[in-house]
Design a protein around this nucleic acid. Structure first.
Lengths: 254, 254
DNA sequence: CCCCGCTGTTTGTCAGGACAAATCTTTGAC
DNA sequence: GTCAAAGATTTGTCCTGACAAACAGCGGGG
């Protein structure tokens, strides 16, 4: 028998800083996560039981459990009673965040840029009012942008924001993403309803996106809410299907 | 001043069964959730502080916190230090599960039915082998189905399952969904990578789905993994964009 | 040789307590 | 009247301790 590559409980050294303002369980979770990413904790390996781990780190078991639990919720670890906690064996990358297209493209090295086609205050149409939960005719900031990657058109983005919520400077809209501007304005996003579909390009869309007329386009409509339940943005976007797909990962909630 | 509709801390009566095998924190979470659904806890209302709640229920504070935390993770509640825990004000329905199309349609009252077009064992193509993480040419079960709602074609579903993992009886495939068959066969789904795009219908697809040739179609590719990290299914599906959109909700992980 | 039950291991659940940090409210000073 | 400081309230973090439940592996009986 060769020495079996069975999941041995790896013992790594973690450094915890009790004087740091960042919680201990979170420090543990971060170091575990980076150990998993760097391969120090290969897929399938066991973590060693929680009580030993707590003793070795000088922590209590609930604190260790809290740190581990956060990674279980992320889908990186799996717990089994009587067995232990082991690193999940599949490739887990992004658990589908409420991310902005701009950030997604930037992290993918796609070199995104933006051209603002429209940026004005208008009374809300019936569709926009219903999506934002405001009265028809109330003032909303309408922004229409063309998103490009490597100089090629990628998507037409049309956003509606309740007037007064945000200062939508055209210059900043061209240099960064809308969600970044929201967060720096103190708006904390909480949830969003999304709807993804497809349809054929109209003549105007075809010209703007440099696609043949009637080409298949991906559509996405999204209403985003902050943590008080207030609708802060309604977006109606169109993507070139030949150059973009939505990619994400789902987790089964146990 | 009229009596302000400010969020008063509602005091409800919960019944906990300590002899039940279902955990106390979970009993609390379920009753809180149903109270929110039924409107006993209206959006914006406060829950009352955890210590009082624990005393009233005869529970410890960690147990109460665990129950509340599970609803926070679901997006139903929001905690604020110094303020309290309150019911989130937006409409939260489904936090995007890894659900099967069949179940989705059935719960939506769409009366789904299935016609199996193909069900056979074949050697894996390069694409399928890469998606499932198996060697090219290994045997896979290929299932091709037409999904209908109210007798109308809705989607063409093509699934690939490693041979031997599951007994794919054609009769059961027509009367239920693939994911239900997997679960009843002891396969516990853990995560999946999805990719949603669009393209124009080929002549064959157009005829099968009763769409004009070149019509916009929604495409979805998904690889599903069980909790050991093993790929258990690769699906490549095509939906009629005129009759179907992907709808789901996202939560921002704090 | 196979099946059953026993035992050790590990996570799941629950209790009770303590202090820190963030927030709102009230009070006081100017 | 306005602003700042002090206090009260509530959640966030962390500790110790205990028992229950599920699982793997071992050994005995058939």
């Amino acid at each position: 028998m060769t020495p079996s590559p069975s999941p041995g409980s790896a013992d790594l050294d973690f450094t915890l800083d009790r004087s740091s303002p960042v919680p201990l369980y979170y420090q543990l979770a971060q170091q575990l996560e980076s150990a998993i990413e760097h391969g120090s904790l290969p897929p399938g390996s066991l973590l060693g039981n929680e009580i030993d781990l707590a003793n070795r780190l000088g922590l209590s078991r609930p604190t260790v459990r809290q740190g581990i639990q956060s990674l279980v919720d992320k889908g990186l670890l799996v717990r089994r009673r009587g067995i232990g906690t082991q690193v999940v064996h599949s490739q887990v990358k992004r658990p589908l965040e409420l991310s902005s297209l701009y950030d997604d493209l930037e992290t993918a090295g796609q070199n995104p840029s933006t051209r603002v086609l429209r940026n004005e205050i208008q009374p809300a149409s019936a569709e926009v009012a219903a999506a934002l939960g405001i009265s028809e005719g109330a003032e909303v900031n309408v922004v229409e942008r063309l998103r490009l990657t490597h100089g090629q058109p990628m998507a037409q983005l049309r956003n509606h924001v309740p007037a007064g919520l945000l200062d939508l400077d055209t210059g900043r809209l061209e240099s960064t993403g809308l969600y970044r501007m929201m967060r720096s304005a103190g708006v904390t996003l909480h949830s969003a309803n999304q709807s993804i579909g497809a349809r054929e390009a109209t003549a105007e869309e075809a010209e703007l996106l440099e696609e043949p007329e009637g080409a298949a386009l991906l559509t996405m409509r999204r209403t985003a809410y902050d943590d008080t339940g207030r609708a802060v943005e309604y977006g109606s976007h169109v993507y070139r299907a030949s150059r973009y797909t939505f990619q994400f990962q789902l987790l089964v909630r146990g």
